[in-house]
Design a protein around this nucleic acid. Structure first.
Lengths: 132, 132
DNA sequence: AGTGAATTTAGACTTAGTATAAATTTCATC
DNA sequence: GATGAAATTTATACTAAGTCTAAATTCACT
């Protein structure tokens, strides 16, 4: 019996597809370790490095977005449109959020700093209703 | 000859003071490693862990602020008031910045998410004038 | 079937940061 | 001044996230 002969060379290998599926199916933002564990449940030979390879590829293809927060490992998100986050400092819960009027903030920052602004991210820290 | 007998127990030991001095004198946001190197130049027996201990203490005392950015190690800032940052994706240069009207963004986030918002940080990514 | 390019695998390695036990320092009291 | 408790520093071992590399595998194409 030959190995699952899904496509290579088209750059969306079975491993990368599996990583993408896991991220899309997750209701939360997973870490690389969590992704590794879940994909590995279906592909026991999966190497740890392959997950990072897949994540880099998927990021470059614009299929996932990497979220970097305070203390912990990067998390990965299938929602690729620009958006912001609210994080609970007690329990760590994280909520997607979108500030209104980001465009004017970006324009003002560009004008005042002379940078070409490519992206903006707002992170609110606070206490969620359940922890309060 | 006894060792430099600066104060302990008042919680601002000579090591912590040295760490704070280095952060205040730096024109940039230093990593723990950079702080360690600079303080160690004056205190050769300084232990790596002591820098982290000092940084934690100084954070808790509100004397320094920890900045966590994308890829790299935490950086430490003697400017403790809330402020934002603009980062160059090419050379890594980082500029302090302050968005206008953060208060209304915070209020809106509190209203819409039901979180008690304690802090907000805006990070712009872009290309600095020199890299462009 | 054979070749070349990209990918996966397995595992070593790097870096940032934490944990711990022993030694040191200080404060407070005698 | 000597003593003892509490906190800190030192030195070092350890953990966790992520990168690197060499060999094996897979695939596209002839």
């Amino acid at each position: 019996m030959s190995r699952d002969n899904t496509n290579k060379r088209n750059y969306l290998t079975s491993q990368r597809q599996a990583v993408l599926d896991v991220i899309r199916e997750a209701g939360e933002h997973l870490t690389a370790q969590e992704i590794f564990d879940r994909v590995r449940a279906k592909m026991p030979r999966l190497a740890y490095g392959t997950v990072y390879n897949a994540l880099r590829h998927l990021k470059e293809s614009g299929l996932v977005r990497e979220l970097k927060f305070g203390d912990a490992a990067s998390r990965y998100d299938a929602k690729v449109e620009r958006h912001d986050h609210v994080v609970c400092v007690r329990c760590g819960a994280m909520m997607d959020y979108e500030v209104s009027g980001i465009e004017s903030l970006v324009k003002e920052a560009a004008r005042r700093t002379k940078f070409t602004i490519l992206d903006a991210h707002v992170e609110f820290k606070g206490v969620c209703p359940r922890c309060r």
